[in-house]
Design a protein around this nucleic acid. Structure first.
Length: 647
RNA sequence: GCCGGUGUAGCUCAGAGGUAGAGCAGCUGUUUCGUAAACAGCAGGUCGAGGGUUCGAUUCCCCCCGCCGGCUCCA
């Protein structure tokens, strides 16, 4: 198995593309996403470059690289920078790597860019591509680099951070860049590209440093591939859960309520309740016990748990009551700990699994909230497993089984594992206890290895109290989010002085495994809306069937059909409006109702329905009883649609 | 929170320094129809909030708020 943790050096001066991030892209590319480069997994060019002779005058040759796309995208970033520098001679250029579907470059510019600027920049870039000039690289001494980039503060900063005596240098035409390569040989080999948008980005990804302007471009070897990607992106935008949420009447939000506080409408509430009931059932079978705990509590509780010290910034500010300061809970671990503490436990009680589907409140920064995937009131499918240290691995495996079952039923196939570790240097964010972290991280690694699962590691992504294994999914636009998470915690048991009586009659400290399967109901719904493009499988569909009477005289029979479905506990509506049948079908199609039951004279006569499926179309005359069995059967089997992609 | 964009009817969007328009949805009427949109009429907006410039602002300027794209953060 692959422990995907390679040392990578970022191009154009190894700035803010963290090793983890570079590798993460590689894993996604290889395992899940749209392209796999000729060599299979995307080895970054700089890994190869690192094996070359680093001395002054040595050719910085990348011909051996079998990474054409990487090189095309990287060179396109250089061509972009060249165009921007021509248009804005006073511009400072910072960092410009190839990324998954293209490239970007960061600039410090005298004024904000407009869409027209992008058009002009793009035109200039095409000129450079057309001129087909050679791109050349070599190693140069640091002093020479300092002279070349004398008026480029960002480049100078990068030069100073390079430990070698020589630095990579690439140029084409009049354009120079500090860069360790992975480039096309000539600008004519760059392929088909388009500048997509510009956005702000902090220098070095650090919010205390200047905000630069980042220009993003998409690039593929051929125009056909680029067009296909642009088209796919447009389609992805059409299944944005925020858009579908409105169109399908799933949820709404209002600035009268506040940012990040959406309201689930009846149809969305139906979906959530079904998901929730189902997962609670699975958890009960897996030995979890469910509790309810309050959303408001004294700040002292969170001081004891450590949340206050480490998490205060992310909590809603406290409210002052008569004698106490109260806060909205950001997590419910302390409550579950209190549930554990109501009894003195024997080792025979363990593992004890306390679960709750409750809402947490987190004061997310205003720029990040949106839709259902990033909210300030989130309903966690949370549980805390109190166990002995030697039960951690089997509990971990049990959670993974649960996650896999849930994902399989929902049809979630594109996800990756991320082992989130602490950043040892960050004692502010993380509980300061080296031994505890080492142990927790080792246990998680071992557990993953035993399950033979591939993962990437991410330093600085852990919870404040312990390391975690996150399961990452991507939304339709490729943005990555954590869905499920499993966390090992030696800290909270210590804080609350938890204990159990062991076989030896002595007191021992239990371990807590925190875990979320759905993550949050909100984020899971956002994801599923996009995954299904709003066409929920029958078991989750807010309306499972619409009965469509052809004319008013068929209303009585339509109601009979409805009642037959209701008798099997199906969610059914009769469209008794004045529209023609075609319009009623269209309405039901647009609402993504799985089944339409058209009834007219023939059907009323023969006690049949004319069955239509939203994806399969007209299925023809079907005896009413048969139609009911079919729909109820699909519901009970939690079947996925034949092919949601093609809808 | 930061950078940029943006905010006109329930939704999607036009418009212009002289107090606004379309399509869909809604309502009413006519039509009773066979697998993705029948026809007609009606109604619907302090043009995101506040301030300023102006004889006059929804339009120009400032500030605030929301939304969108990123960054940072994160379930």
């Amino acid at each position: 198995m692959r422990r995907a943790r390679a040392r990578t050096r970022a191009p154009c001066g190894r700035a803010d593309l963290s090793p983890y991030r570079a590798v993460r892209h590689a894993v996604w590319s290889a395992a899940h996403v749209t392209w796999a480069p000729p060599g299979g997994e995307m080895t970054t060019a700089s890994q190869e470059a690192g094996q070359e002779e680093r001395r002054e005058g040595a050719p910085l040759d990348t011909l051996s690289l079998d990474e054409r796309l990487y090189r095309m995208r990287h060179s396109a970033a250089h061509v972009l920078a060249e165009a921007v520098l021509e248009m804005f001679p006073e511009a400072k250029y910072a960092f410009g790597p190839p990324i998954e579907n293209g490239f970007y470059y960061d600039f410090d510019l005298p004024r904000p860019l407009t869409p027209e600027d992008l058009t002009r920049i793009e035109r200039r870039m095409r000129g450079t591509v057309h001129r087909d000039v050679p791109i050349e690289g070599r190693w140069i001494p640091k002093d020479e680099a300092r002279a070349i980039f004398a008026d480029q503060p960002y480049k100078l900063e990068m030069i100073e951070e390079i430990e070698d005596d020589v630095v990579g240098f690439f140029s084409h035409a009049e354009f120079d860049d500090l860069c360790e390569g992975g480039h096309a040989e000539r600008t004519g080999e760059i392929g088909a590209f388009a500048l997509t948008h510009s956005a702000g980005a902090y220098w070095r990804g650090d919010e205390r440093r200047p905000m630069l302007q980042r220009i993003y471009g998409a690039l593929f070897p051929t125009q056909e591939e680029l067009d296909a990607w642009l088209k796919a992106r447009e389609e992805a935008e059409r299944r944005d859960h925020r858009r579908l949420g409105r169109e399908l009447e799933l949820f709404t939000s209002s600035d009268l309520v506040g940012q990040g506080l959406p309201t689930l409408l009846p149809k969305g509430a139906t979906v959530r309740r079904l998901l929730e009931d189902w997962v609670v059932t699975l958890e009960r079978r897996a030995g979890y016990q469910h509790v309810y705990s309050p959303v408001l509590g004294k700040v002292d509780l969170y001081k004891r748990s450590g949340h206050w010290e480490h998490y205060q910034e992310d909590m809603f500010p406290p409210m002052q009551l008569e004698h106490d300061e109260m806060v909205l809970r950001p997590m419910n671990c302390p409550h579950h700990i209190l549930a554990y503490e109501t009894q003195l436990h024997s080792y025979r009680d363990l593992p004890l699994r306390i679960a709750e589907f409750g809402t947490m409140y987190r004061f997310e920064r205003s720029g990040v909230v949106g839709g259902l995937s990033r909210v300030r009131a989130m309903s966690l499918n949370d549980a805390h497993i109190f166990c002995t240290p030697d039960q951690i691995k089997s509990e971990f495996a049990g959670v993974m089984r649960l996650v896999e079952e849930v994902y399989a039923v929902l049809g979630i196939t594109q996800y990756s594992y991320r082992l989130s570790l602490r950043d040892p240097a960050d004692t502010e964010k993380y509980v300061d206890n080296d031994a505890m972290w080492e142990l927790g991280q080792r246990v998680l690694r071992e557990a993953m290895d035993e399950l033979e699962l591939d993962y990437v590691t991410a330093e600085g992504e852990a919870a404040f109290y312990g390391p975690k294994l996150d399961i990452q999914i991507r939304d339709m636009l490729g943005r990555e989010e954590t869905m499920s998470t499993i966390q090992v915690d030696f800290h909270l048991p210590e804080q609350f002085e938890l204990r159990y009586i062991g076989e030896d009659g002595a007191e021992h400290r239990p371990v807590i495994v925190h875990r979320g399967v759905l993550g949050t109901a909100e984020r899971m719904m956002a994801y599923l809306i996009e995954l299904y493009a709003g066409a929920f499988p029958v078991w989750l569909a807010p309306v499972q069937a619409t009965v469509i009477p052809i004319a008013d005289r068929h209303l009585d029979y339509a109601n009979e059909v409805r009642d037959a479905l209701l008798a099997r506990d199906l969610r059914v509506e009769v469209d008794s409006g004045g529209d023609r049948m075609g319009a009623k079908i269209r309405k039901a199609q647009l609402q993504k109702v799985p089944y339409m039951l058209v009834v007219g004279d023939r059907e009323a006569e023969a006690n049949t329905v004319s069955l239509r499926h939203r994806a399969l179309g007209d299925l023809g005359a079907t005896p009413l009883a048969e139609a009911v069995v079919r729909i109820a059967g699909e519901r009970d089997a939690k079947s996925l649609d034949p092919d949601p992609e093609t809808e």
